[in-house]
């Protein structure tokens, strides 16, 4: 089983919002706060590791970014991925989700006999969830989004539980295929100490545009399929209300009622 996991480096979504700054419709990265692996991508790595643990194989983590992006690949390696690839080139700079998916597709086609491509359901920065589906289209492979459980059956068939609002659907798909992994797959494992030591010492190949032969008219800032019109900080209002009741059951009922009225549940 040859698995490729697409990973992305993002601003830490747990960072306090006051640390963000916006300028000219761009997010300014705060100094001193390291970028992290997109949490949904860490779950995709976790899904890949579970498949590998049961059926063996090889996991390659791949990212589009800069030289700094090696940290996100190292994170995947420290979790248990076997190989990493960094795709970096001036021509890639400013690529939107569509272009990124195209770059990834070109690179994945260079990897021998890929059985399964996994992506996080979305990235914590823009939350678009586009890369996985477009990647499947570019690779001309079947796609299942929002996978919460993956099981390899005989004959190269993957059984996938796909999250829907009221439950989940069960699909079977022939490999090779592309999956996006939902957060219901569970908490990604932490890297182990030996995983970190090995990851830091591992050479990670860097592929440029020359290595993957993209059509430059389809990548980079000039190829924007999506146009950002404006970017602003959300207004946040916080208030505290103590929910009362005579008994714990009544308090819970009152709380549930208020959450329902507020549209939270």
């Amino acid at each position: 089983m040859n698995i490729v996991v697409c990973v992305k480096q993002v601003l830490d979504p747990e960072m306090p919002t006051e640390k963000f700054r916006l300028k000219d419709n761009q997010v300014i990265s705060p100094e001193g706060i390291p970028l992290v692996i997109n949490p949904c991508d860490a779950q995709a790595v976790e899904a890949a590791l579970r498949v590998k643990e049961k059926h063996g194989g090889k996991i390659t983590a791949i990212t589009v970014g800069t030289d700094e992006s090696k940290e996100v690949v190292r994170r995947a390696l420290a979790m248990g991925a076997d190989e990493g690839i960094i795709l970096t080139d001036d021509a890639f700079a400013g690529s939107d989700s569509l272009a990124t998916a195209y770059i990834l597709a070109q690179a994945i086609q260079k990897i021998d006999a890929v059985d399964l491509v996994l992506c996080g359901r979305e990235a914590a920065d823009w939350s678009m969830g586009i890369v996985g589906p477009v990647l499947a289209e570019r690779l001309n492979l079947p796609l299942i989004t929002l996978a919460k459980n993956i099981e390899l059956l005989d004959n190269n068939i993957l059984k996938v539980e796909r999250i829907i609002p009221d439950g989940y659907q069960v699909f079977e798909v022939s490999l090779p295929a592309v999956l996006t992994v939902s957060n219901e797959i569970g908490l990604p494992r932490l890297p182990t100490g030996m995983g970190i030591i090995n990851a830091v010492r591992k050479e990670i190949p860097v592929w440029s545009n020359q290595d993957i032969n993209t059509d430059v008219s389809l990548i980079g800032a000039n190829a924007e399929g999506l146009k950002l019109l404006s970017l602003s900080m959300p207004e946040r209002e916080r208030k505290c209300e103590i929910v009362g009741g005579e008994t714990p059951d009544e308090v819970a009922g009152n709380l549930a009622g208020k959450l329902r009225v507020a549209g939270v549940i």
Binding site: P34, E71, R74, R75, A78, L190, P191, G193, I196, I197, A199, V200
Partner: peptide, 9 residues
């Protein structure tokens, strides 16, 4: 890099 990864983990 190794120290940062251990710190985080």
């Amino acid at each position: 890099e190794e120290q940062i990864m251990f710190q985080d983990m």
